[in-house]
């Protein structure tokens, strides 16, 4: 045992640092190749500006304050829409997972609504809300609702019935049973829903902002297109990628913190 320990000890210290870097090798390589392709003239800058030009455009927008303002507006829309849609989806998931009556009452309706692509509602939403903030929030909330609803419901329904029986035998009240058995059991599935929802959140917001908005990243990209500022268009797309990655990392962090018991999170 002591021999194995002494061998594996330094490796376990070194590994996380390398792991943190490995995931960035590919994006950095892509940027490097992209830069070389632009500088050598292999790709005309009318088609795709060099990463250095994109960075320069970003720097200018940053100095003017426009970039931060637009990112902030988009971030605000995304998170508020996510919170509204996510809470409603979570509430319906809980209600329909715990109560047969509630499920009979609402599940069929929700499944019908689910099959309407929520982006198809954009014309209707513009008629209802104009190009106001509420239009974007409504669309994001609607898009986020279903993955969270479905996965919360699924999580609660698939909690091991043997554990629930155990909880009842040991005299847990309904509240305790929910807090100590049902909710923790449903949590891994709820997180799957959250990560799906984060993807849909960005998608919805981009489309909504591109079609009807007077601020935000999507608007910034559309404005840049009008003036043929291709570097700003590319910049907006890259920022979306970064924000998406950020949201995903945040949910992973939360997952790691709350699912420490799960075998999948116990390595390392």
């Amino acid at each position: 045992m002591s021999l194995i320990d002494s061998i594996s000890l330094p490796r376990s210290i070194r590994l996380p640092r390398v792991d943190g870097l490995i995931q960035w090798i590919l994006p950095l390589a892509v940027i490097a190749i992209w830069q070389i392709a632009c500088v050598t003239g292999f790709v005309p800058t009318r088609v795709l500006p060099a990463p250095s030009d994109v960075a320069l455009a970003g720097w200018k927008l940053l100095l003017s304050g426009e970039l931060v303002r637009n990112i902030w507006v988009s971030f605000w829309r995304a998170s508020v829409g996510f919170l509204i849609g996510g809470s409603i989806g979570f509430a319906f998931g809980l209600a329909n997972g715990l109560s047969q009556l509630s499920a009979k009452l609402t599940d069929t309706t929700l499944q019908m609504v689910r099959n309407v692509p929520h982006l198809a509602l954009i014309p209707l939403v513009i008629l209802w809300f104009g190009i106001d903030e509420s239009a974007k929030l409504f669309l994001v909330a609607l898009g986020v609702f279903f993955p969270i609803y479905l996965n919360t419901l699924h999580g609660i329904r698939t909690v091991d019935p043997q554990l629930i029986e155990m909880g009842r035998i040991y005299g847990m009240t309904d509240g305790e049973l929910f807090r100590r058995v049902i909710f923790p059991g449903a949590l891994p599935s709820i997180f799957v829903g959250i990560r799906f929802a984060l993807g849909i959140m960005w998608l919805t917001l981009i489309v909504a902002e591109t079609i009807a908005a007077s601020s935000g990243l999507g608007y910034m990209a559309m404005q840049a297109r009008e003036f043929m500022l291709i570097d700003v268009v590319v910049l907006s797309i890259l920022i979306y990628a970064l924000l998406g990655k950020l949201a995903d990392s945040a949910s992973r962090l939360l997952e790691r913190a709350t699912l420490a018991w799960h075998p999948a999170f116990q390595k390392r």
Partner: peptide, 16 residues
């Protein structure tokens, strides 16, 4: 089956 709560540590499981 032991029917332990996977999300509770051993001591908390016994306290159940």
């Amino acid at each position: 089956e032991p029917r332990l709560l996977p999300w509770a540590r051993v001591l908390a499981n016994v306290e159940v």
